[in-house]
Simulated assay, not measured.
Amino acid sequence: MPTFATHHPPIELARIAFSQLTDEPVLRIARLRKGWGHMSWTVRAPSGRYLIKTGIRRPHLADLYRQVAAQQHAAVRIATPQVIAISDQGGALQRPAYIQSWLDGKDGEVTLPRLSAEGVHRFGHDLGAAVAALHRIPGPRFAEDCAGTVTYATWTAACNARLQRVLTANEKASALPTPALHTVTDRIAALIDNLPDGIEPRLTHRDLYLPNTLHLNGHQKPVGLLDWESAAYYDPVWDFVKLNMWVFDKYPQLRTPFMDGYTTDSPLPEGFDERLTVYQGIEYLAGFPYFGAAWPDETMLDGFRTLLAGWMNRHHLAGDRP
Rank of each mutant, 00 (worst) to 15 (best):
Q72H: 09
T183H: 05
G303M: 08
Y152P: 07
G271V: 03
P113W: 03
D107S: 14
R321I: 03
K250W: 03
V223W: 06
L61D: 14
L216Y: 02
E24F: 05
L93Q: 05
S230L: 12
S87R: 03
L51N: 13
A117R: 13
H73Y: 01
P252R: 06
A169L: 09
M39I: 14
A45C: 13
L13N: 10
F240P: 08
T42H: 09
R162D: 10
Q89S: 15
L103C: 05
T256V: 13
L13D: 14
N160T: 03
L285I: 13
D186I: 00
A153M: 07
P96T: 05
Y284M: 08
I86C: 12
W228P: 02
G148R: 06
P96G: 09
N212Y: 10
R57W: 06
Y209N: 09
H8M: 05
E24G: 06
L208W: 01
P289W: 13
T299G: 11
A175L: 00
E200M: 02
P59Q: 07
G124I: 12
D207H: 04
P322R: 05
Y65L: 14
V83C: 10
I192K: 11
G224T: 05
Y262H: 05
L191M: 14
L103V: 09
D197E: 14
W41L: 08
G319N: 11
R31V: 08
H135V: 08
P59C: 10
G224Y: 03
G90P: 00
E12S: 15
H205N: 13
A143V: 04
L32R: 15
R33E: 12
D302Q: 14
G119L: 06
E283Y: 11
L112A: 10
L32W: 13
R44P: 00
S47I: 00
I99N: 11
P9I: 04
Q280A: 08
G319V: 12
P2L: 10
R15F: 00
P96L: 07
K34D: 12
K34S: 14
Q220A: 07
D107V: 08
G124P: 08
P179N: 01
Y209I: 01
V131Y: 11
V166Y: 03
G303C: 01
A169Q: 13
H205G: 06
A293R: 12
P10A: 11
W228Q: 08
E229I: 08
T42M: 14
E144H: 09
Q253T: 10
A130Q: 10
L51V: 15
I29W: 12
H7V: 12
Y284D: 11
P211D: 08
P179K: 05
F123G: 07
P25C: 04
H135S: 04
P179F: 03
W102P: 07
Y50Q: 02
A45W: 04
P322I: 08
G48V: 01
E298N: 07
G198T: 06
A189G: 00
F258A: 06
